[in-house]
Write a protein that binds this DNA or RNA. Structure first.
Lengths: 228, 228
DNA sequence: ACATCTCTGGAATGACGTTCCAGAGACAGA
DNA sequence: TCTGTCTCTGGAACGTCATTCCAGAGATGT
């Protein structure tokens, strides 16, 4: 009598695109983008590299899927019950915070235009720009400006996090800013007059506050827009 | 092997950091970031990979030096004789155009904050923001916003160029936009209502004009800033 | 029972960044 | 002129990575 019904499946938990993406996100968060290799990923999933390629076409797609999964989680479900301005701030901060917890999506967003994650953010931003009363012919421009600013900051923050982590894993953010500020203050007085003059503000600034200030700048730009 | 004539130097043109950076820029421009390898670079310079490492610490520094060389070339020499607004537009367009001719610096700028190229742009932008009459406590924020927007667009454009070049080397930019626009128009009517509504604007928009519009948005934001 | 399809995972492949090292040419001091 | 030292060279080697190959295990349909 052969055993007809196997209690277990082929594997306790069969490989799947979702499980792979999930494991990839975990690796990216813990060891960074450089730490994600098909070898370590295979090890973590107790399989071989070849098996992963059955579910995923390559590393690029894997990174894209991981980014999409994270970004999708930060988008609001229903319509906002606040002012468009506030909704845009919340939206932008959602992306900002997501990049802070997962620095690698900063790079990813900055280098994958037109892809699903960017479209999600674009759509949600656009709706609020519409709600803001921007004329239709201007909505594309305004939304793009917001999005470009957001991914710009995201890319810089991601790079900052990478540098911070790589060079000085122990030092606090305050020390990091102190060093950067000191470096600015040491620049050539003639060639870098302005940069030196704001070195103090670099030391005291808060990334998040600064980020929102930039958003607000664009928002007032949108509402006070000169005809032309 | 007979001794050759020794009228020349050790090499006709000895290796030097500058020659290496120059060759790297050439390779980056012709074959893209993925085409720049120490092997091809060594071949182009008729030497071995090892020799390059005597002048340059690694690939990261090489890319940084190449970016710096290009960006430095786009910065204005003396003070501008126009309005600050116009000077900022010129400055931003300089970077924008540089990225269009050398797409790889888009990526590079987006991922190397605090480095020399970014500082250069920051300094020049800041001076004009100062000239704009922005209060000192606000200059850092305003300049950062401009810079972040610029690198955001830069990163997107670089990625676009990469995708455009990789997938459809033959199609024109117009066709490329047509395809993208059609893709937007095909999106889910409920989930992507806004994006669909601006699909037409995507087709007709001009990157450069759109970019300046974003700059102007931030500029009016700076000048019309709400106290707070 | 057999054939076929889906999925697996270990072994190979080829390219890359980087390091190593034996030594060629330049140069200073004898 | 000889000799040792220093700068710079470039070919070979190393280790790692993404990706491909492939032999076959388990399931499924006939």
């Amino acid at each position: 009598m052969a055993t007809r019904t196997r209690r277990t499946e082929r594997r306790e938990e069969p490989l799947s695109r979702e499980r792979i993406v999930e494991a990839a996100i975990e690796l990216l968060d813990t060891v960074g983008e450089r730490g994600l290799t098909f070898r370590t990923l295979a090890e973590r999933l107790t399989t071989g590299p070849g098996a992963i390629y059955w579910h995923v076409t390559g590393k690029e797609e894997l990174l894209g899927a991981a980014t999409d999964a994270v970004v999708a989680g930060t988008m609001p479900a229903g319509p906002a019950d606040t002012t468009p301005q506030e909704a845009i701030r919340v939206l932008a901060l959602g992306v900002f915070d997501a990049i802070e917890t997962h620095p690698w999506i900063g790079d990813q967003l900055a280098r994958s235009p037109g892809k699903s994650p960017m479209l999600r953010v674009f759509e949600h931003l656009g709706r609020q720009v519409q709600a803001l009363g921007a004329p239709p012919a201007f909505q594309f421009t305004a939304t793009s400006a917001l999005l470009n600013y957001i991914v710009g900051v995201g890319g810089q923050n991601a790079a900052d996090a990478r540098a911070h982590h790589a060079r000085t894993p122990d030092t606090s953010r305050a020390e990091f800013l102190d060093d950067a500020s000191a470096a600015w203050a040491d620049l050539d007085p003639v060639e870098y007059a302005f940069t030196r003059s704001v070195a103090g503000q670099l030391r005291e600034h808060d990334d998040r506050t600064e980020f929102v200030a930039g958003i607000d700048l664009i928002l007032t730009g949108i509402t006070h827009r000169q005809p032309g």
